[in-house]
Design a protein around this nucleic acid. Structure first.
Lengths: 178, 178
DNA sequence: TAATCATATGCAATTTTTTGCATAACTGGA
DNA sequence: TCCAGTTATGCAAAAAATTGCATATGATTA
């Protein structure tokens, strides 16, 4: 219900194309928001038709034209209205945990392998997030002030990934002492 | 894509009605799986038509009949096939963080109130999870062994909620020292 | 040199989820 | 006694997300 609003937040900071948004979701919001390119282009189309966004076409040689979107006053209004709403708690659907819940039906080796695979992904993710944090902490105070809210979301990502890894340690210990 | 499989896992442990499943999701899987009653009844209908489930109708006086579902051999097969698949990382879409990312457009009081509201929910959740854990730890060893996989998912819930609360402390400190 | 990855966009069909409505009785508290 | 909550199920429509397909070029790498 709020990919539209996530897009509004990103475009309010800086105008961009669908592809730009895809990269921003992946690079800066990967921990708390995920969207496919199809989803993004669909929503941009809808938002443009609804008058939330204005599009300007940048011709490029050899490649399809880049469509750069930015907020209209109506888009800005829609964003402020959404920010004023009361939010519902996050809806979590984590299939890894469903699969572990049914662990008695599985081979322990299979569980171990799945955990190891996810651990690798989480460790890569942690490294990426910590590197972004280092970059932020090296900024002058004025710049830090500017990115203070994105930084808070980054901290959430870091604490969350670390909690996952702590849990994975518990699971490994558990699987080794049945 | 896997509410069907979450239902299979629950029904494999113990047959039940749609309403039973709703309660089990809420009470035991609330941390990692959420589904509405409409969604559950729709999926049960599909799964029954697909031959994954067998239904028996328990007449009740005054109330609509209770339909108790249990796995057919095909349902069991579908579950095992799903458990053997390699799983994708969890898809997280957390609107609270999108809203915080755009915090510069908001009133600090509004952010504080939203955080306080979610904190209350997480604290209640933590208390509930810790109480289930105490219950588990009081069980005789044999019973603990039986519920070892659900217990691992419970630990995930606990670590995860605690990480959220730690983060909320950071956010509060941050909002008080701008 | 072939294959893959990154850039850049989009349609169409299907599946999944959400929202709104509908029914009906029992139970506990203000 | 009324009101809210719990038990118990479901349909229909709309919105959102996924999957599969389609196009086209430039850069890197095996």
């Amino acid at each position: 219900m709020s990919l539209k609003h996530a897009i509004l937040v990103l475009l309010e900071t800086e105008p961009g194309s669908g592809y730009d948004l895809l990269k921003r979701f992946r690079e800066h919001m990967g921990y708390f928001w995920n969207a496919s390119h199809q989803q993004i282009y669909q929503q941009l189309k809808w938002m443009h038709e609804a008058g939330w966004l204005e599009a300007s076409t940048e011709p490029q040689q050899g490649k399809p034209d880049r469509k750069v979107y930015e907020l209209t006053p109506q888009g800005h209004e829609a964003l402020l209205a959404w920010l004023a709403e009361t939010s519902k708690p996050e809806k979590i659907n984590d299939s890894l945990l469903v699969r572990l819940y049914g662990g008695h039906l599985r081979d322990t080796e299979n569980i171990r392998a799945e955990m190891a695979h996810h651990r690798t992904l989480y460790e890569q993710n942690r490294a990426a997030l910590l590197s972004i944090e280092q970059h932020y902490l090296a900024l002058p105070k004025a710049e830090q002030q500017r990115y203070r809210f994105p930084y808070l979301t980054l901290r959430r990502g870091i604490l969350s990934v670390e909690a996952w890894l702590d849990w994975a340690d518990e699971v490994d210990a558990f699987l080794n002492h049945p």
